[in-house]
């Protein structure tokens, strides 16, 4: 048996969540996907909070924009880029899980903090 065939029988090295996050059509476990989505929502929330604050944006439309974005951004990413069907994991809300609450708290805190700093 050639060395090349031997090598092809070796199991593929286990990729970390962050390595898999950059690849398309990988197999995902529910916990892994939820962890990834948590950090995506968290990052999106902090970045949008800083952005709104720096531009001194205010009012209800900004909050509505955040809610739409915090669901749409991860959904588009896992559907269109990762090629994951959320129905395999119990639906969209099951994947988003506790990310929404933590993301909203992070967003509001960052927005208020940066907005206040810009006003003073």
């Amino acid at each position: 048996m050639s060395a090349r065939t031997e090598k092809s029988k070796e199991p593929a090295p286990k990729l970390s969540i962050w390595q898999k996050a950059l690849l398309r059509d990988e197999e995902w476990q529910k916990d892994e996907l939820r962890t990834l989505v948590f950090w995506i929502v968290f990052g999106f929330s902090v970045v949008l909070g800083v952005f709104y604050g720096l531009l001194s944006l205010r009012g209800l439309p900004c909050l509505i924009g955040y809610f739409i974005g915090s669901v749409a951004v991860p959904t588009i990413y896992w559907t269109n880029y990762l090629g994951v069907d959320d129905e395999d994991f119990g639906g969209k809300m099951e994947v988003l899980g506790d990310s929404i609450g933590a993301g909203f708290a992070s967003f509001t805190l960052t927005w208020i903090g940066v907005y206040t700093a810009m006003q003073s």
Partner: peptide, 20 residues
């Protein structure tokens, strides 16, 4: 607000409790 955000982040980073 800070408590909610930091609690969730520490839960994810340290993963000491039960899986969700």
């Amino acid at each position: 607000l800070g408590g909610l955000a930091f609690k969730a982040v520490l839960d994810r980073v340290l993963q000491l409790g039960m899986p969700k």
